[in-house]
Amino acid sequence: MKNQFSRFRGSNSYIASEELQNSVNVAIALGKPLLIKGEPGTGKTMLAKSIADALGKPLIIWNIKSTTKAQEGLYVYDTVQRLYDSQFGDRDVSDIRQYIKLGKLGEAFVSDEQVVLLIDEIDKADLEFPNDLLWELDQMSFYIPETKETVVAKHRPIVVITSNAEKELPDAFLRRCIFHYIEFPDAERMKEIVEVHFPDLDRKLLEQCLEAFYWIRSLPNLQKKPSTSELLDWLQALVIGGINPRKIGEEIPFLGVLLKKNQDVETLLWNLRNPRGGRKPSFYSR
């Protein structure tokens, strides 16, 4: 059994902490869904892709919206098409099976090889949504009354579920998951992450940027803290704009890339003009 463990070690384009690797491998070995929480931009969604890449398995993504119903993940019965067909007689309407369309979860079940199934942003849906999937995720099967068929997973998919903590998830659901909270990366790890995306970035520029970035994140009363993706966009903008690294700490060019809310921009400008306790605190030390 031991060789089942430690299969996932991150991938070339995704840096996973040892903790995270552990959680992923525990979830895989136990065949339980892995619930991932964390600040936006900590790479929750990317994780599933990375697992799929690293293990060489196909990835199926089920994006959850506020209107998504659990049923849609299993299958949809296209009544209307069948009614139309019954009028025009194009197809044999007595064969209900052709009007059953499998959802993402259904697809993952019938796949001929094991897949990675990402249920993205599960907290967007209705409060009861996770409860409606308990049986299916536990048993890895569901029943289609219309065709009197039971769909059973050929290979138990590796299920990764992400949540932004917009809603609290029901206990019964949580009990069945392996849980991992992705911490916001510290400056050291952030450096590694940035280097994956920009291998030949000027060191000076990177250090100045990280210092400014973590300083901005430390500001109180920020409505939306900039995240990794915003930092990456910002670096891109700075490289293209050819900004002198020394200027970054003083004026923070391309501010709009980092902060998306007017109020936050004002907060930042105010703090730039009135540095509390003299100089900006340096969160990034070499």
């Binding site: 430690s6 959680s23 525990v26 136990l30 619930l35 392996i178």
Partner: peptide, 22 residues
């Protein structure tokens, strides 16, 4: 299944991942 055994530090993370949900 030996999930903690193969990596000793993994014991702590194993407990946390399995037992703690928030």
């Amino acid at each position: 299944k030996g999930l903690a055994g193969s990596s000793l530090t993994g014991f702590y993370y194993l407990c946390r991942a399995v037992l703690v949900k928030s």
